[in-house]
Design a protein around this nucleic acid. Structure first.
Length: 220
DNA sequence: GGCCAGGACACCA
DNA sequence: TGGTGTCATGGC
C-alpha cells in the first residue's frame, strides 16, 4: 500500500477536511504558533478572544501590549512563551517586509522556509504549516501524529528525522498543493481518532496495512 | 489524578 | 546530534 492509496482510504473514511480552519493568512500563522504542543480546542478560544479584542491583524499585534496578549491567549497554555513568539514574528515581519505578508511569501519555498526558520519560536512544523496553509505553496507538514502513524504502519523507523519524513512524502506524492493540505489534515484526524499513544485500531480505516496492528494480532 | 494535546528552545555532554 | 528539562492550560 503506497501513500496515495492510504490517502484515498482516509478521504473515503473521514471526508474532505478543508484545512486550515482560518479566515485569513495571518490567522493561519497565529494559529500555527498557538497550537504548538496544545490542543486545537484551546487555540480556538484564544483566536476568538484575539478577534474580540481586535488583535488579529499585523498592525494591531505589533502595537499590542505583551502582558495583555498573554491574558488573551491564556487558554492555549505556555502563554508567556507564545506571546513572545507572536511578538517576535510580527517584529520580524515589520523589520524585514514592511509588515506585508505578500512580500514575505513572494520567494521560493526553500528561501521562505529558511527565512521562517531563522525566526525564534518557529521550528520546522510551524514553518511548513505557514508555507502550506498561509503562503499556499506545497511544503509537506510533518507532525507527531504523522511520525507515529508512519512508524506504526512500518513505513518509517520511529527515529526518522523530521526532514527525512518530509522528503519521504514529497518524493512519493505529486507536488500538489491541495493534496498536501488535505493529506496532512487527514493524518491529524487519523491520529486524533485512532492512532493515539494508546491505539484504538478496531475501527481504523487502514489497520489492515498496519504492521504494528498485525504484530499485535500474532501475539494473541 | 495522571496523561496528552496539530512544538520549540536552552543547556549539557 | 542527541538526550533531557522547561514552558502551562484544559479535556478526558
Amino acid at each position: 500500500m503506497n501513500l496515495i492509496e492510504i490517502y484515498q482510504r482516509l478521504v473515503e473514511h473521514f471526508g474532505r477536511q478543508g484545512w486550515w480552519p482560518a479566515e485569513t493568512e495571518f490567522e493561519v500563522i497565529v494559529g500555527a504558533i498557538l497550537t504548538q504542543a496544545s490542543s486545537w480546542k484551546n487555540v480556538e478560544v484564544a483566536i476568538k478572544n484575539l478577534k474580540a479584542e481586535n488583535l488579529l491583524s499585523p498592525e494591531a499585534l505589533l502595537k499590542a501590549n505583551e502582558e495583555k496578549l498573554q491574558r488573551v491567549i491564556r487558554s492555549v497554555g505556555y502563554y508567556n512563551a507564545k506571546a513572545r513568539k507572536l511578538k517576535t514574528f510580527i517584529e520580524f515581519l515589520y523589520e524585514n517586509y514592511d509588515g506585508d505578508l505578500e512580500k514575505l511569501f513572494d520567494q521560493n519555498i526553500e528561501k521562505l522556509r529558511s527565512e521562517l526558520l531563522s525566526i525564534w519560536g518557529i521550528g520546522q512544523e510551524t514553518a511548513d504549516s505557514i508555507i502550506l496553509y498561509a503562503a499556499n505553496k506545497p511544503s509537506f507538514v510533518i507532525d507527531a501524529y504523522t511520525a507515529r502513524i508512519m512508524s506504526r504502519l512500518g513505513l518509517a523507523r520511529e527515529d526518522t528525522s523530521y526532514y527525512d519524513l518530509k522528503k519521504l512524502f514529497e518524493l512519493q506524492l505529486p507536488e500538489d498543493l491541495e493534496l498536501y493540505k488535505e493529506f496532512h489534515a487527514l493524518l491529524v484526524e487519523l491520529g486524533k481518532n485512532y492512532c493515539k499513544t494508546k491505539p484504538l485500531c478496531d475501527k481504523c480505516p487502514i489497520r489492515d496495512t498496519c504492521e504494528e496492528w498485525k504484530d499485535s494480532l500474532k501475539k494473541k
